[in-house]
Design a protein around this nucleic acid. Structure first.
Lengths: 145, 145
DNA sequence: CTGTAGTTGAAAATTATTTTCGATAACTAA
DNA sequence: TTAGTTATCGAAAATAATTTTCAACTACAG
């Protein structure tokens, strides 16, 4: 049994065809996908898949830390399969490819400083980085594509 | 002339009553406000204010770096008057009050490490902290409110 | 003053997301 | 296996957020 299936089962949720299809789409994706994109690609694995189920499943996966929500410029959200232990994403502005990373000591230090500076007690954060992935850097340098 | 008026004028934009009202609302606010909230409070200063103008103005201010967009759980956005030089916000989960801060060395270090780890060339980031402000900490400790 | 853009606000359109509800299917316990 | 319970599904409708359209208006340059 796949690890995500165990997590779902442990949470008292069922392993259904639609959910399998959605997780499979996320697994094969290289970058964050919007619910619409998940629906389109998911139909290949479960032809009757509906948008509502996509929304519900993405929400569920996010709540269980199996997927991560990514904020976009235009206001619509995208989702990424979570890499265990890594909680933030770098996203390529050109091709959309994403990698997750851990906040690490630097982030702890930043949070500590801000707690001192502001007196706030900090309990959570939202961090996303945007840039250009190695592949796209090459393509830009060689003028290709 | 107020600094934001100069910025608008320099950008070739006009200083209008609706805009004055919206900036005034943001100035008097302690935390990020949604377009709806800006509209309600703004009507006190310009009774015919419309929601569309609020959206347009908040967008404009954000583009000119006079306001900052804050992402929320529920998907709807809120806006904060920008403190010059500070680009990120800590937001109180209890009362909504917000303070801006600078990323500083820690954030630079983090970005540097991720560039090395991933090979991405990082050009931008989204960072927000969530926590409890000093006031609310007291209220929680004394069991008040 | 006066002309001309930039700006406004109402209504309508669009887009994102959630709710409702009868039908279906996954797991549980016999 | 075989029910039976109950989570889950998907379509349609509802809601919420945001943008577009367009005729009227007004800030500001000349």
């Amino acid at each position: 049994m796949d690890s995500w299936e165990r997590r779902l089962a442990d949470a008292g949720c069922r392993i259904t065809e639609p959910r399998r299809a959605i997780v499979r789409v996320l697994k094969e994706a290289e970058g964050p996908l919007t619910p619409d994109q998940v629906l389109e690609q998911g139909k290949a694995f479960h032809s009757t898949l509906g948008l509502v189920t996509v929304y519900r499943t993405l929400n569920l996966l996010t709540k269980l830390n199996l997927a991560r929500l990514v904020h976009r410029r235009n206001g619509c959200h995208a989702y990424l399969l979570a890499s265990p232990g890594h909680h933030h994403a770098v996203i390529c502005r050109r091709c959309g490819r994403a990698i997750e990373f851990a906040g690490g000591e630097e982030l702890n230090a930043l949070v500590g400083r801000i707690e001192e500076e502001t007196g706030y007690h900090i309990g959570g954060h939202l961090l996303q980085l945007f840039g250009v992935c190695p592949d796209c850097q090459k393509k830009i340098a060689t003028g290709k594509e």
